[in-house]
Computed example of a mutant assay.
Amino acid sequence: MVMVRTPLTPEEHERGERLGQLLREARGSRTMADVAASAGLSAETLRKIETGRAPTPAFFTVAALARALGLSMDDIAGRCVLIGV
Rank of each mutant, 00 (worst) to 15 (best):
M1D: 06
M1K: 07
M1L: 08
V2D: 04
M3P: 03
M3Q: 09
V4K: 13
V4P: 02
V4T: 15
T6Y: 04
L8G: 04
L8D: 09
T9I: 13
P10F: 10
P10R: 12
E12G: 02
H13K: 13
H13E: 12
H13L: 15
H13T: 05
E14V: 01
R15F: 02
R15T: 05
E17Y: 01
E17W: 01
E17D: 03
L19V: 04
L19S: 02
G20Y: 00
G20K: 00
G20F: 00
G20P: 00
L22A: 03
L22N: 00
L23E: 08
R24K: 07
R24F: 02
R24L: 14
E25C: 02
R27S: 05
R27E: 11
G28V: 04
S29E: 13
T31M: 10
M32E: 14
M32P: 01
A33C: 08
A33D: 15
D34T: 14
D34N: 11
D34I: 04
D34V: 09
V35Q: 08
A36E: 07
S38I: 05
A39R: 06
G40M: 07
G40H: 12
G40N: 11
S42N: 10
A43N: 12
A43H: 10
T45E: 10
T45P: 04
L46Q: 13
R47W: 10
K48E: 13
G52S: 01
R53P: 00
R53D: 14
A54M: 08
A54Y: 05
T56N: 07
T56K: 07
T56P: 03
P57L: 01
P57H: 06
F59A: 15
F59L: 15
F60A: 14
F60I: 10
F60K: 09
F60D: 15
T61W: 02
T61D: 08
V62R: 00
V62W: 00
V62N: 00
A63M: 15
A63K: 15
A64R: 14
R67G: 05
R67F: 09
R67Y: 12
R67T: 13
A68E: 13
A68W: 09
L69P: 03
G70C: 11
G70M: 12
L71F: 02
M73K: 04
D74Y: 05
D74F: 12
D75H: 08
D75I: 02
D75G: 00
I76A: 03
A77F: 10
G78N: 11
G78T: 08
G78W: 04
C80I: 09
C80N: 06
V81D: 12
L82E: 06
I83M: 13
V85E: 14
V85C: 11
